[in-house]
Structures are given as C-alpha cells and as structure tokens.
Amino acid sequence: MDVFMKGLSKAKEGVVAAAEKTKQGVAEAAGKTKEGVLYVGSKTKEGVVHGVATVAEKTKEQVTNVGGAVVTGVTAVAQKTVEGAGSIAAATGFVKKDQLGKNEEGAPQEGILEDMPVDPDNEAYEMPSEEGYQDYEPEA
C-alpha cells in the first residue's frame, strides 16, 4: 500500500510541476504579447503594419512553449490582441483601416495563427491545408 501511495504522490508532483510550467509559459506569452502591443503603439504610420505582424510573430513563438489545451486559448487571445492593436492603430490615425491585415508588401496577414497546427491532446499534428499553395516548377 505504501508503494501505491508513494507512486500516487510522485504522479501528483509531476502534474503540479507540469501545471506550473504551463502557467509560466502562458505568463511569458502574455508578456511578449504586451511587449508587441507597446511596440505597435510606438510606431509611426509606416511601421504600424509591420508592428502588428511582430506582435503576432512574438506571440506565436511563445505559444510553442505552452502545451496542451492552453495553446488553443493563448492563440485565440493573441489573435484578438493583434486585431485590437490594429483597431487602436486605425482609431489613433497611425494607419488607414484599409491597410490593416496586410503586410508591407500588401499581402493579407489573416491566418497567421489560424494555420498553425495545434492539437490540445498532444496526440497528432496535421499540416495546414494546401489550398493556398501553388506547385513550383523550376525553369529549365
């Protein structure tokens, strides 16, 4: 019985440690998101679009440190934060509304985080759909 109880105690310690790591990862992701939003706020009209992409990228980098179902929630929060940063930029006159959601080359930025393969159960990952990809044929 002692062996059984000791095993359960060790398992509990492992769960607590994993929860603490997840909590730490979420806190880091939130900190990076805040950094990115402050970065966007300090940019001029020309830099705002690039700044919004930076927020998304920093958040995406930190999301990889967070495991399990938390990833889905962090990704949703990050996307809403990026959308909010863009709205703030438009409201303050840093950028025109028609410039939001495009990178410096004018290509749409939507789907940055949505296409990231995420499995809350950590069982399997699927690649994003290939609808947006084109076949590449090298020139002879």
Rank of each mutant, 00 (worst) to 15 (best):
G7V: 14
D2I: 15
E13T: 09
G84L: 13
E139V: 12
V52E: 00
E46C: 07
L100K: 03
T22G: 03
A53I: 15
T81I: 11
H50A: 13
V82C: 06
L100I: 06
Q99K: 04
E114C: 15
V118E: 11
A124W: 13
A30K: 02
A29I: 13
K21L: 10
L8H: 00
G14N: 06
E126D: 14
V95C: 09
E126F: 04
D119F: 06
E57C: 08
E130C: 08
Q79D: 03
A53Q: 05
A69V: 10
S42Q: 08
V95K: 10
G47P: 01
E83A: 14
H50Q: 11
I88P: 02
V66D: 01
K6H: 04
E131M: 02
I112Q: 07
V55Q: 01
E20P: 00
K21V: 08
G47C: 10
F94I: 15
D115F: 04
N122E: 07
Y39E: 01
D135N: 06
N103S: 10
D98C: 08
V55K: 02
V74E: 01
F94S: 06
G67D: 01
K58G: 01
E131N: 09
V26C: 08
A17K: 13
K45M: 07
A19R: 02
T44Q: 00
E137L: 07
K34S: 01
E137W: 05
V40Q: 00
S42P: 01
S9E: 14
E28M: 14
N65F: 14
F4Q: 00
D115M: 10
V63Q: 01
A30R: 02
A91W: 13
E123K: 10
G93L: 05
M127I: 10
K43A: 04
Y133K: 06
K6Y: 02
V74H: 01
V95Q: 02
P128F: 07
E13M: 07
K60N: 02
Y39F: 15
A17T: 05
K21F: 14
P108S: 05
T22H: 01
E130R: 04
T81D: 02
E35Q: 03
E61H: 06
E105H: 02
T54D: 01
T75E: 04
G25V: 14
V26P: 00
A27H: 07
G93R: 07
A56M: 07
G51T: 07
P117D: 08
Q79F: 07
A90W: 09
G25D: 02
F4A: 00
V40F: 08
Q134S: 05
V15W: 08
T22E: 00
E131I: 06
G93D: 03
G111V: 01
Y39R: 07
G86F: 11
E83V: 04
G93T: 03
E137D: 06
K23L: 05
T75A: 15
G73P: 02
I112P: 07
L8T: 00
S87L: 14
Q99I: 11
S9W: 14
E139G: 05
K23T: 03
N122W: 06
K32F: 13
A29E: 00
G41Y: 13
K21Y: 11
G41I: 08
E13G: 04
E123P: 07
K23A: 10
E110I: 06
M127H: 11
G84H: 08
L113P: 06
Y125R: 09
G25L: 12
V15K: 00
K34N: 01
K32S: 02
S87W: 15
A27F: 11
A78I: 15
A19M: 06
K21C: 03
K23H: 05
V55D: 00
A140M: 07
H50L: 11
K60P: 01
A78G: 06
T72V: 05
V52I: 07
E139P: 03
D98R: 11
E114K: 13
Q62F: 12
V77Q: 02
K6C: 02
V95P: 14
T72A: 15
I88W: 07
D2M: 03
E114N: 11
Y39G: 04
G41F: 13
D2A: 02
E83I: 04
T33C: 03
S9A: 05
G73H: 06
A90Y: 12
M127D: 04
M5L: 01
P108Y: 04
V3E: 01
I112D: 10
A29Q: 02
N122H: 12
A11V: 15
V52K: 02
A56D: 01
D121V: 09
F94K: 05
D119P: 12
D98A: 09
K32R: 04
A69I: 05
